[in-house]
Computed example of a mutant assay.
Amino acid sequence: MTLEVFYFDTGIHLARIEQGKQNISVVTLAKICEYFEIDLSEFFSNIEKMK
């Protein structure tokens, strides 16, 4: 998958978020998780495991 395909599917500019040019809201994060079929609670659980 490319960033272009992801943007076409979701309207979300991942590159801008990755580069720190755009802040991410919880709503946007939820849309990203939904696209990748990840539960939002699972996303935060995995972050906690990385510490």
Rank of each mutant, 00 (worst) to 15 (best):
D9H: 13
G11T: 07
H13P: 09
S45F: 12
S25V: 09
T28M: 10
K51C: 05
H13W: 00
Q22V: 01
S45I: 05
T10V: 10
Q19N: 14
G11D: 07
D9E: 15
K49H: 10
A15R: 15
S45P: 00
E4S: 13
Y35V: 08
I47M: 12
N23P: 00
A15L: 12
T10L: 07
E48S: 09
K31D: 10
I12H: 05
T2E: 11
C33D: 06
Q19E: 12
I12D: 05
L29D: 10
F44L: 09
F44C: 05
C33P: 04
I38C: 07
I38E: 10
L29G: 07
Y35M: 07
Q22L: 07
I17N: 02
E4I: 10
T10I: 10
F6G: 04
E34F: 01
E48Q: 10
F8I: 13
E37R: 10
I32Q: 08
Q19D: 06
E42P: 00
I17F: 02
K21R: 14
E4L: 08
Q22D: 03
F6V: 08
K21F: 07
E37G: 00
E48I: 13
F8E: 15
C33S: 04
M1N: 05
I24A: 06
L14S: 03
T10K: 08
L29Q: 11
T28G: 01
L29E: 11
E34W: 01
F36Y: 15
Y35G: 05
M1A: 11
G20I: 06
F8A: 15
T10F: 04
K49S: 11
C33Q: 08
H13V: 03
D39H: 14
T28D: 03
